[in-house]
Nucleic acid binder design. Structure first.
Lengths: 228, 228
DNA sequence: GTAATAGTGTCTTTTAGACACTATAGC
DNA sequence: GCTATAGTGTCTAAAAGACACTATTAC
């Protein structure tokens, strides 16, 4: 039985408004997306999300549901767009607003039912969530060198090597370390923290941070994929 | 009195789902947006839009309402995003999905109540439509050299000078004609039609067309704003 | 012819790619 | 010392900016 709704003017209305969050991270050179078990005990998995409450901003819903279902917060989040074609949700007319939230490599997900899947794979997902995930991958690839979209995907302080590994996983390319450092610094999106980090052998690396946590565009500089 | 809705599960639901379309064009070097009179006889103007019918794709609603309210079609349309913060519509909980639709300079709007306003001005608009319009301007500026977003803003066949005038109005910059032609051709988004056009004195200009009408990204080539 | 617009060629500047070289750590 | 990682310098290649020059039209 599908949910329905009628408004006070007598017209059919959406049964609910949903939000979904694509949480992306990098592990071992691969781009991963976070999925949760669906309400009910189905096999099929879904993006974390839920219904917008009355009077609630959808962005707040997205963050609230992300925390409820996975225990995670989001250092960076931006809207991906609306997904509202008929039939996208078998429960009824339920448009969804999707968000993109990158998180750092090694992020531990408190909720045990959450699971990482390859973002670029073909794991079937509930609703139209595969389409949403594909849109998220396309978005983060497209903005990689033009914005600070990776803010959320790197910890508060990171080395240029850390950043390079994340960029390489997203772009599916290999960058020359020297050129990468020069070009990332040239975007003006990062600044040195002054600290250094030594882990094992090798010269300690200088640490950097992003100059802003809010979604921003870089200097509009070009960056092609330089496959070494 | 505000509209409300309750779904078949007993929970509050959105009263409706809306779409709004930002129609942009260029006239005399300025970027203009199309507004219509609001239903009812208010002074305040709004973006053309309306409610999504049950079982209807929001994109189809946007095109249908655009045609109903202005008589226009849209050669190119893409989703801008969802606008759904509480209070955006005084009539009740009504999320809106906004679209961006550029149309060629000189487009005649059949409906007499439609009016062009400066896209970058501060004309007050109904609902959150000023915010939507600002997002549209930012989007078209950002994608200008990276996509065929101007497909809709140029007629089926155009000269490089036509294109340059449109690009200059969007980017608020002046381009060197020679460099502009070289760089636009280098994007791979346009191709010669073989035809020429002579209007008044001067050498006839070769005509070009876009190679695709679907939203596409260019070759990822860089283009800075070259202010002559 | 002149004025006007279209289009080509090419030199310079800027950005990116490649890669040799130096620097500093653990062992 | 050797190996591993970090970081610098610089040469080359590619893209963009500037601008002189040629081409074709109306008058």
């Amino acid at each position: 039985m599908r949910w329905t709704a009628t408004n006070s003017e007598g017209y059919p209305a959406p049964a609910a408004l949903a939000t979904d969050v694509v949480v992306l991270t990098v592990r071992e050179g691969s781009l991963l997306a976070l999925t949760v078990a669906r309400d009910g005990d189905r096999d099929e998995r879904a993006l974390p999300g839920g219904f917008v409450g009355i009077g609630e901003r959808p962005l707040d819903t997205a963050l609230r549901k992300l925390h409820e279902k996975t225990g995670l917060g989001a250092p960076y989040i931006e809207q991906l767009g609306a997904f509202a074609d008929p039939g996208r949700d078998p429960r009824g007319w339920i448009p969804s607003i999707a968000y993109l939230a990158p998180v750092p490599p090694g992020t531990v997900v408190p909720d045990a039912s959450a699971r990482w899947i390859p973002a670029r794979g073909d794991t079937p997902l509930a609703f139209d969530h595969r389409e949403v995930l594909d849109a998220a991958v396309e978005r983060i690839e497209g903005k990689l060198w033009w914005s600070n979209v990776t803010v959320g995907m790197l910890p508060g302080a990171f080395t240029l090597s850390d950043a390079r590994r994340v960029y390489e996983a997203i772009a599916q390319a290999r960058y020359d370390p020297a050129t990468f450092g020069r070009d990332l610094k040239a975007t003006g999106l990062i600044e040195p923290t002054g600290a250094q980090r030594a882990t094992g052998p090798g010269r300690p690396a200088a640490m950097y941070r992003f100059t802003s946590n809010r979604p921003e565009w870089g200097a509009g500089r070009r960056k092609r994929i330089a496959v070494v």
